[in-house]
Design a protein around this nucleic acid. Structure first.
Lengths: 159, 159
DNA sequence: CCCTTTTTGACTTTGTCTGACCTTAACTAT
DNA sequence: ATAGTTAAGGTCAGACAAAGTCAAAAAGGG
């Protein structure tokens, strides 16, 4: 059990647990240097150990002054419902499925009525004219992104 | 956050917030000197961070006694802003344009912070891996659908 | 041995910074 | 007035600096 990926995973999780703000920011190349591996190894670790269904969100920026930010999704409150819903969403989602999921989020009081309307608009109207296969994939992508966003912002009330 | 562009952006925004008259006037060369960079860097910051979609207007004059003026466009109160933004969105929208527009909705208090995050997730994360032309079209579609939803649920401006 | 996971590196995409060259305005001397 | 000088700011292409992708090679584990 001495593979680099596990060490990197461990290192990042330690950083996360030490950091009370719920996220950690790194520079990919520097981290790769610290573990003597190629930079893309970092991406491997991020995709296999820090995926959304595992409760993490990864954001990054390229170019000069770029960074990678790993956010631990706050699951303390009702978050688990949203995470379950996230896991339920596959590669394609029908319109009625999407509406059902959004309805459950609303009933579980994880989103407001306005937020529900906003989400409905995305999964129905915005893509209404696309062909079925593409449409269902888009719907899944948007829905997942939105659920992650909800997952991340539940609790915080930054108005 | 170790790139000059971000520092300059920050500096200008601070000046703007301190200045109640809604604009700030600088001399390009002097500002470049203050940040130890080449003058055209200032133009880079202005075009990437102070675009019209982000709610700014940049005026300038060359020659002796030249200047650069950065104006924060006042947001039209209530429904008009969203309607204007809707009209501004064409068939394709870049990521930074979209983020700028969402930012303005938030500043205009037409959407909450959470709603802004939700919208950002749709226009940036959900479609990150699609090819550019398709991506920009899909972004425009989603953004329009979302703005319409905002217009509807904000009441007043019927659509 | 075969299958899964890890590791690697060549290539791509995105964002930033720089410098050479261009345009415009004000001032000055004729 | 007019031409020349100087003092601004503008443009653009290319260098540089990250991070992302993908598929093939290598390493493990049953």
């Amino acid at each position: 059990m001495s593979n680099i990926a596990d060490y990197i995973e461990c290192y990042l999780k330690k950083l996360l647990s030490e950091n009370p703000c719920g996220y950690v920011e790194i520079r990919r190349n520097e981290l790769a240097g610290r573990f003597n591996c190629v930079p893309s190894q970092i991406n491997y670790v991020l995709t296999t150990r820090f995926s959304a269904s595992q409760g993490y969100l990864v954001e990054s920026r390229r170019g000069g002054g770029g960074y990678v930010r790993v956010v631990k999704l706050p699951l303390e409150k009702q978050g688990n419902l949203a995470l379950d819903i996230y896991r339920l969403i596959g590669d394609t989602v029908s319109r009625s499925e999407a509406e059902g999921l959004i309805g459950r989020l609303y009933e579980g009081e994880l989103i407001t009525w306005r937020e529900a309307q906003l989400m409905q608009a995305v999964v129905s109207r915005s893509i209404a004219h696309l062909d079925a296969p593409l449409r269902d994939r888009f719907r899944a992508l948007s829905l997942k992104a939105m659920v992650v966003s909800i997952l991340r912002t539940t609790g915080e009330t930054r108005f």
